[in-house]
């Protein structure tokens, strides 16, 4: 137990990264507001960045920039930071793209709440379906309801 606690304290960045990651995932999966989902994604990605950068860190190391006056210096590993720069670029593009989608949805439905959007869409679909059914009957059409149910379960 004591060893475990010691390990936890020594490796605290990993611990916090995991906590942040879980917060992010929880936000993405449980919030119905699209902006909050996006925030969750960003928190989650930051957690991964912290994880990587912590992996590259060396206690007492200096920045990985060549300094000829200090030949004995220990440099931290620059590779994870460089990798995370790529990760940040990806995260920026994801954020921008998601924002433009949210704006599109907001202009269309007047709300940025996933649940309300799904409700509006389903009721519209049902009305269209009903109208179509009145117009034209076909034996293969009896399964429409189950399709609707599937539809709703697709919302996260």
């Amino acid at each position: 137990m004591r060893i475990l606690l010691e390990k936890l304290i020594v490796n605290y960045p990993y611990f916090f990264a995991v906590i942040l990651f879980v917060i992010g995932v929880l936000t993405v999966l449980t919030r119905s507001n699209l902006f909050k989902k996006l925030l969750g994604i960003n928190i989650m990605e930051s957690a991964v960045f912290i994880l990587f950068i912590a992996a590259g860190n060396i206690r007492g190391g200096t920045d990985p920039i060549l300094d000829t006056s200090k030949p004995e210096a220990v440099y931290i590993n620059p590779l994870p930071s460089a990798l995370m720069l790529t990760g940040i670029v990806v995260s920026v593009s994801v954020t921008a793209f998601a924002l433009s989608l949210i704006i599109r949805l907001y202009r269309e439905y007047g709300t940025a709440d996933a649940r309300q959007i799904a409700q509006m869409r389903n009721s519209a679909l049902k009305a269209a379906d009903q109208a179509g059914r009145d117009n034209y009957r076909h034996p293969d059409r009896s399964n429409g309801k189950r399709g609707d149910k599937n539809d709703r379960s697709n919302q996260i």
């Binding site: 994604i41 990587f52 994870p80 994801v94 989608l101």
Partner: peptide, 29 residues
């Protein structure tokens, strides 16, 4: 609008997936 909604859901879950993969890569590294 349906397409935008589907794309948003896809984007969220796919980014979740790639964050998980990135975590895995981090541990391997």
């Amino acid at each position: 609008p349906r397409a935008a909604e589907a794309a948003f859901t896809y984007l969220m879950l796919a980014t979740l997936g790639s964050a998980l993969v990135l975590c895995g890569i981090g541990f391997i590294y």
